[in-house]
Design a protein around this nucleic acid. Structure first.
Length: 271
DNA sequence: AGCACTGTTTACAT
DNA sequence: TATGTAAACAGTGC
């Protein structure tokens, strides 16, 4: 489910429930989701208190009184905070047992999500955040020229370059289509043919689209419920992704494949 | 029945 | 180094 706005929505919801609670135990049912040795992961987290919830790009960060739990939801990861064990099911792979009797259930049908414990000093100096690009929402002053320089070094389609989290982070398959439509740029245009003015537009529209989507608690399409059953509202603002007709010119929206990802664009409006 | 598709990322071959 | 493809996995729809 998650691109930046959906992860931020999860962060905001979890923050309200989890801050101040201690993690008494962790039930790990599918060990491949944990990037650490299981004992190292457990030993460093059990007994710690959750002090805040952070995010960078699509990475969710549980800040502890000592260290952090990095969580990436990948395609379908979802968290449920509850004291009702009837929500437990075969797709729940990790359960955090909390000091107030509630539990935090991690559900992930495809088992693509990942968890890792990080010491504070290694959070941004080791993978996966070591080479992370600029977060368009969190970064106060964005160096547009630096981003432009990175974009034009690539020859891949601009869509593929924008999905590369080492340049700008947070955009995924839905929002990148929207950003390119609003910027009037074809998704298959080679990145080295993007002008500095167009790179600037891409950045501005990324901020605009992601901010609006956060405000609306993300996008809910294809019967995906947003995590925690929270329904998003941005699907009502989509211009091209999963659409048939261009909202600007009424042309047929084309669907093609770029880098293996389903891609929607208007041939008439984007060049 | 079988194949294509799915809001992600990474390992590997070329 | 850069790029394309497959893989991690499970479900849905045609």
């Amino acid at each position: 489910m998650p691109e930046l706005p959906e992860v931020e929505t999860v962060r905001r919801v979890l923050e309200k429930s989890l801050v101040g609670l201690e993690i008494n135990d962790i039930d790990i049912r599918y060990e491949n989701l944990i990037d650490d040795e299981i004992d190292y992961f457990k030993d460093n987290i059990i007994g710690k208190k959750i002090t805040s919830l952070s995010r960078y790009g699509k990475h969710l960060i549980f800040d502890l009184n000592e260290g952090h739990v990095l969580s990436h939801l990948r395609m379908e990861g979802k968290f449920f905070y509850s004291n009702d064990s009837s929500i437990d099911n075969k797709h729940v792979h990790v359960v955090f047992i909390l000091s107030n009797g509630y539990r935090l259930y991690y559900q992930d049908v495809r088992k693509f999500g990942r968890f890792q414990y990080k010491k504070t000093e290694e959070l941004y100096t080791t993978k996966p955040l070591k080479f992370i690009g600029v977060d368009p929402i969190l970064e106060k002053s964005i160096d547009k020229k630096a981003i432009f320089d990175k974009i034009v070094m690539k020859r891949l389609p601009i869509k593929t370059t924008l999905l590369n989290q080492e340049i700008i982070c947070g955009l995924g398959n839905i929002y990148v289509d929207e950003v390119l439509f609003l910027s009037n740029i074809r998704p298959d245009r080679p990145s080295n043919q993007i002008t500095e003015a167009e790179a600037s537009m891409i950045i501005d529209h990324s901020i605009e689209v992601l901010s609006k989507a956060i405000e609306l608690k993300g996008t809910t399409i294809r019967s995906y419920t947003s995590s925690l059953g929270v329904e998003g509202g941005y699907q009502d603002y989509l211009c091209v992704h999963t659409k048939d007709v261009c909202p600007k010119c009424n042309s047929q929206i084309l669907k093609i494949k770029i880098g293996g990802r389903g891609t929607y664009y208007c041939e008439n409006c984007q060049e």
